[in-house]
Design a protein around this nucleic acid. Structure first.
Lengths: 228, 228, 228, 228
DNA sequence: GATGAATGAGCTTTCATTCAT
DNA sequence: GATGAATGAAAGCTCATTCAT
């Protein structure tokens, strides 16, 4: 019996290939689940639905993940690893000014959430639950780490005099995440209210990417920098 | 049989008081449901849970609302009525400057969401679903109306020269809603990451109210007004 | 919702009516379950089977008993109460000699097991499981009480000189129970091997009742009494 | 494919040694199954459980035995062979008196059941099922043969005047088997009720062996022999 | 008007077995 | 010969709803 064996393998990273800890079928299942959880929520999605969409047998979900719950956790392990903004090297990058770093951070963050909209919607649902065990822990870890790195990044700008001394970093983060997040989760309203139905899906995504980038950069600059 | 008779006509009793169309027991049920839907989602909450928490018979939910689904819709009718920011008179108020109106708007909005956190968490969950029928319609109507009023409000400031000409109002709205919303739905993380566990619940609520107000006003001013 | 409410009512005993703690439908279910558990074992019987045989909906079993497990426990509560041999008054009866009491005991015991063969087969299966929780406790309680009463009964015979001083009461009990029990559970072999297939079921039951009575009384007498 | 080839022919290798028709792995599986079937019953035991306890692959059980059902049958073939009390030579043994033979029979029987308690518990469960196909046949064959031999053995005593003429041999057999059987299957109750928890497992087994031997011999003597 | 009883449909999970190698 | 992967079937249970009073 296979069950859970390779799940805890470390991800081996070579120059080009990232060996996933999950095999093809598992990824297939997780991606079907992700889409459904995003649309209908965890409880609103049945294992039958997932199996059908993933084109696998219903029993295979238990076989590979143990339970629906564990499948969700696996999804967070799978996606969650890349939810860290991988800011470390950027924070230390000496070729960029703090303001360039902030701009890069904003674009990178928008990019990350927009290209993982399904998973992000799952996160939005799950982070509302107070004590979600494994998932809460995972999310808290990611949030804590991201905030620490951004704090350091802003501290650099404060040290060299580019940024104001007193900045409410936690709230600024919440505005960044909250703005992108809210637009992602309510984009159908945004589209309709602002009469953007004529755009193709692709154009629309490009549109909000650009708008968000400009808008958030302006907010960050206004918040962080002295008036010029 | 009683069913659904009076549900959809609000009876305006006097000039100022709107008597709810829902009787005591119905409100009881809706409030229990609201709390549970906020915590565990619509699908994650059983009619039995609601009945238990509301201290009523399980059959009574179908009896009073027709179905679990309809109960949710009733909740949106009940709460949704007051979700309109009631901005009309404020927009027309000639004793306030546009900038004062914006500040009042922000505080009113923060206040509204913070005092209706449970319902707001329900909204956050529900607005993610694309075609939610009645609920989507209700939400869209509210969003559309709110945006129109704010547009008019900002237009006043633009006309009298207080505000910049080119403002991305939709995105500014999304930042307002997204920031408050994200803080509400992830407050347990915010509290832990920023070491605010020592505060009482009440102190913590006061804390975020003040922080949000200051933070969002600064963002709005920076976005709307010319640098001085 | 009904669930488990009246299960813990005390059995009210009036002159003629014994109010069962279980309603008609519950008894119906328990009797269907008893038959099936006897034939196929607890694990070999599905809730579907029980529901079908009892002529009720599958969900009703959970509704009335909570679970399959709890149904079994209810069965032991229902039948177990009468598993006590109700010897108390007989033990104290001064109109009977000890030897008459022993004979009455044997007949009563044979009678009890033969008229409750299904339940008895369930007991035989269940008593093999070492720590069966509620059921083990129930069985132990019954066994302990029965043995205590028989000990007292035999002590009476020993005091008045009818019975031998040194009698292995526990083993004598095991012979009594084991003999009846083994014949009940293997009666189809007994019938075939001893060529009793021509008897009707009723005749056969009468046959073994008589045989057992005679056989066990002889053993008890030989074991308890001095040779004459 | 290998399947079932050699299962049903015992190869008599030398005059005294019977090489089992089952290979090491098969025996391993059967012994794990025996323990589990004894504890939890056939239906209560999953193929996975057996595979785990036997330290083999789950598929191997179907591979070696065809099915779970067939595994059980194989177990009866494996153990059942030795379930015959091998009385033939004893019955014909002219160096022993009938009474000695009966005593030897009792001890041998107690010994057999006590050293094969697991298998015996499986038998107790299975013999309750009315038409168990292969297993019923096997059991009936054993029971029939044993009873015939004992009949002959007792006939010897009757012929030489040691034993009474009218003895209910079938019931006497049932008392023998039933007593040992009932003690084996309810030994945990026996131990507790008679306060024997201080004994080690080994001491306890020795204890009941001795008690049973003495008790059953007394019963047989009283039943078979004239009072002296 | 209100509710205990009842239920069909659906849920997640485990089952024994077979397949492909 | 041996086994990891896979699966249809069935398990026990809970669901939202309706019925009968």
């Amino acid at each position: 019996m296979f069950k859970f064996k390779q799940l805890f393998n470390l991800r081996r990273i070579s120059t080009t290939v990232i060996m996933s800890a999950y095999n093809e079928k598992q990824v297939q299942i997780m991606e079907a689940a992700e889409k459904l959880f995003a649309d209908k929520g965890f409880e609103g999605t049945s294992v039958r639905d997932i199996a059908e969409d993933a084109g696998v047998n219903q029993a295979m979900i238990s076989y590979y993940f143990g339970s629906k719950e564990k499948l969700m956790e696996a999804m967070f392990t799978y996606r969650g690893t890349s939810s860290l903004l991988q800011l470390e090297e950027m924070v230390q990058d000496k070729t960029l000014t703090p303001i360039q770093k902030v701009e890069k951070l904003i674009d990178r963050y928008i990019e990350k959430l927009l290209t993982n909209q399904c998973f992000h919607r799952v996160v939005v649902r799950e982070q509302m639950v107070n004590n979600n065990g494994f998932i809460s822990d995972k999310l808290q870890e990611i949030k804590r780490l991201n905030q620490a790195l951004i704090k350091e990044l802003i501290a650099q700008g404060q040290r060299n005099g580019d940024f104001k001394k007193h900045v409410d970093i936690p709230l600024l983060m919440i505005t960044l995440v909250g703005t992108v997040s809210h637009l992602i989760t309510t984009q159908h309203f945004y589209r309709e209210i602002n009469n953007l139905q004529s755009l193709t899906e692709e154009e629309f995504q490009k549109h909000i990417r650009k708008k968000l980038s400009h808008h958030l950069k302006a907010i960050f600059k206004a918040t962080l920098m002295y008036e010029q």
